[in-house]
Design a protein around this nucleic acid. Structure first.
Lengths: 217, 217
DNA sequence: TAGATTGTTAATCGATTAACAATC
DNA sequence: TAGATTGTTAATCGATTAACAATC
């Protein structure tokens, strides 16, 4: 397992395969071919095969892969076959959205506790979870076996939030706020930046409109 | 402007530069060098220069770039210097999070109207915006000059939502739900898939832990 | 001027695509 | 068997990195 060489691009595609396979399963299908997956998702068939191979899936010529087996294997490869307790810091609207996100349970990520630095919020509840103070992070980590932190604070407090999580020994972070977080080399940080998404939306929209305007001239 | 060749990777990095430049501006700085940006963000300096060039920025040797000028130019290049009216479909928690997302205004994207297909929600308000029926999409499009659609419905209704937006002539979509949307070639679709982010979180977490376990053996 | 900085051209690296061999 | 499908190896393409020339 010393292949640090698995591409992030591959990892990001695996949930897409999983999604289609769950659909196949619901349709009562027992097997599938990489070619089908490829067509459904618009991903080159060789790439699908390589990705499946990386995830440890072995297909049989002429038969393809078994749906159930593939789902289990993909989940296991991604680490979705175990619970990952997470602590969410920043109990705002995005927190509520994540707490209400049904599909999250598929990934094993479980928001076990909420943190906010607003004294007015501490002690109150959001979606059935009590909101704690940042001072409680170390205790909550021990109590709930927290392994990951989700940062949904406003941008101003994001670095401080990250610092406190890291100080408590939490080494895996999922950050929704500040584009740049200073973290030690060993910390795993995944960013979900709406900014970059919005840049694509506005840029491509502009481009598409310019093109159509040029075309009609 | 016939360069369809600008990479999406470049576009996604531009908001990061913008973010750092806003900080520089707040610190009262007048100029900056690509080298500084490069160090702050951990992006190779030549890459930063290329990106800035693509966005139409011209620096001066020995001087660098002017902060204010660069901010304006980046915003203009991304299309963040004009309002883009959007219609959001799926008035749930994620909708509330996006409506409360202060930084959205920087991008010019404005959620002008809300849609939901739940009769219980239609007519009520969310964050000061009235929730309309999917049947109102064409009218709202005309009324508000809607150019983009944001899809935050549950996965089951996402394709239907996309179909209705497209049928109304909305050609730019930002989708938070289903991993695969069937859309015409000409439609611009940007996906924000938490699933892919979560896959990275769990996979890397697992890897990091395996490695440390191996190391201690 | 000298040197800091830009911007360009070439080299590398890795992801995707294409071609082909293997197998049930 | 023939052919559908897998999986591997080679080619292409494009993003990043490195080297270097230009300039105030």
């Amino acid at each position: 397992m010393h292949q640090n060489s698995v591409s992030e691009f591959t990892i990001r595609r695996l949930p897409l395969y999983l999604h289609v396979l769950e659909q196949f399963k619901n349709e009562g299908r027992a097997s599938f071919s990489a070619t089908e997956l490829s067509r459904t998702l618009g991903i080159y068939h060789t790439l699908v095969r390589k990705d499946l191979n990386v995830a440890g899936l072995k297909g049989r010529p002429r038969v393809g892969h078994m749906v159930d087996e593939a789902i289990l294997q993909l989940k296991s490869y991604l680490g979705w076959d175990r619970v990952l307790n997470a602590l969410l810091i920043g109990a705002g609207n995005l927190a509520r959205a994540l707490l209400g996100y049904r599909e999250m349970s598929l990934t094993g990520i479980r928001i076990a506790a909420l943190i906010d630095c607003d004294p007015a919020k501490i002690g109150s509840e959001l979606c059935g979870l009590t909101i704690f103070s940042p001072d409680d992070i170390p205790r909550l980590k021990r109590e709930f076996g927290i392994e990951a932190g989700i940062i949904t604070t406003p941008a101003e407090t994001a670095q401080a939030a990250a610092d406190r999580l890291i100080a408590a020994g939490i080494t895996t972070l999922w950050n929704f706020t500040l584009p740049v977080l200073q973290t030690p080399e060993s910390t795993v940080v995944e960013h979900t930046h709406f900014f970059s998404n919005m840049a694509i939306v506005t840029y491509k929209h502009k481009q598409a409109n310019q093109q159509s305007m040029e075309a009609t001239q």
